[in-house]
Design a binder for these strands. Structure first.
Lengths: 218, 218
DNA sequence: AATTATTTTTAGCCTTGTCTAAATATTATT
DNA sequence: AATAATATTTAGACAAGGCTAAAAATAATT
């Protein structure tokens, strides 16, 4: 079994590993967890002893199979709880993260299985992120950042990269939600802003926004 | 805010205080939490500093109003989660305690309010224990131990004293569930066992069982 | 009232997880 | 290749929460 702190480290390493092919650096973990590199160094030794990461001094860490499975299971719980909060308890998608951060550490296989069934075995969380299956496998969808679409291309909004509540509330205000069809009407060279059609509405979208919205091209 | 450990101490003191009119002793707390008296002594100082208990050396402790409210809120969460597990996730009443012990520490006022509403504002948990309201008030029902009923008296089974899974599974096996009507057919002087009528069935019940079942006389 | 038994507290130590400051490796730059 | 900059680890400290063993206070008995 893993402590709360160990679980949080595993999750951080899991997420960081998705963004790189090399080992995950001490500093990267420290930054993600808002802690100090020295603390990370200490924890790395513990996790290495527990056979969930491979660790060579000064060379960064990689999750073992056991580590990956353990981390994926925590992510699975996090995302299932997020779905539960939105679908059953009327939370909005910008409110769920903090609570799910707590709920993901509840230890009860039956609980999470039942939640999964209760929700009808969802495949994605409210931000469009895929929910790992029980074995820890993620089904990867081919998604593109809105900013990479060309003029006159279109697709369905399927996820966000940044899921801070500020960004999500901004999207709500603009009427941008998962499942909506988006068409690029025009691209502005000067500041890389976009003119898009979403539903019936025309909107102007900054590059920053376009860099945080995932689209499934159609 | 309170730590996990502080919350568990508050809850223990809260429960122990219901059984006595005097202060709660260090030893009693230690026994309830399966820890050592010296650890309790340490924690008592911390809780006293935080103004949730009144503490006079060697004299036992009493919850302050703040302490009572805090503890009642944890109990409220515990019992609401138990209802949720049984009503929505197909847990049986002997499986819920352990998971609720974890869930009761989740910090999110909105979450527990929504769970409450989702469940239709239940007043009692699956073992018949009352759920404190938001202000921490318990509505006390007048309940009698089955063992105190006289021959030919009858009532409705409304709760259990011992909620260990062994006892609850025993009750399941015998078909004894909350809400059922029970009539005392006979009392055996020798071993204080009872002959009862529950639903259509006649059962013989030991004194130990009868001392752990609450009845609302009718 | 004096002595014994029990309860409670104190003192000192341990583990987990964190930190700062200093030392050491590695990487980048001239 | 030598030096500067950055990243990482080590050493030592601290707080929370727990423990054992010993001391002190209270309660029970004779």
């Amino acid at each position: 079994m893993f402590t709360l702190s160990e679980e949080n480290y595993l999750k951080a390493i899991y997420h960081l590993e998705l963004d790189t092919d090399k080992g995950v650096s001490t500093n990267a973990i420290a930054e993600k967890l808002e802690t100090k590199a020295s603390s990370v160094s200490d924890m790395i030794k513990k996790l290495s002893d527990k056979k969930v990461i491979i660790y060579k001094k000064y060379k960064g860490v990689t999750l073992t199979e056991l580590g990956k499975k353990t981390a994926a299971n925590i992510v699975r719980k996090h995302r299932l709880w997020e779905v539960f909060l939105v679908e059953k308890l009327n939370f909005s998608w910008d409110e769920v993260h903090e609570v799910a951060e707590q709920l993901e550490h509840i230890k009860s296989p039956k609980l999470i299985d039942q939640i999964d069934a209760f929700l009808g075995f969802p495949t994605h969380d409210p931000h469009g992120d895929p929910i790992p299956d029980k074995e820890g496998n993620l089904k990867t969808v081919d998604k593109s950042l809105l900013s990479t679409l060309l003029k006159n291309e279109s697709g369905i909004c399927i996820g966000v990269d940044d899921s801070s509540s500020e960004f999500l509330q901004f999207l709500d205000k603009k009427g941008i939600t998962l499942g909506k069809k988006i068409t690029i009407l025009d691209k502005e060279e000067f500041d890389n802003s976009l003119s898009i059609l979403i539903g019936e509405k025309k909107l102007s979208i900054s590059n920053k926004i376009a860099n945080n919205l995932y689209i499934k091209k159609s």
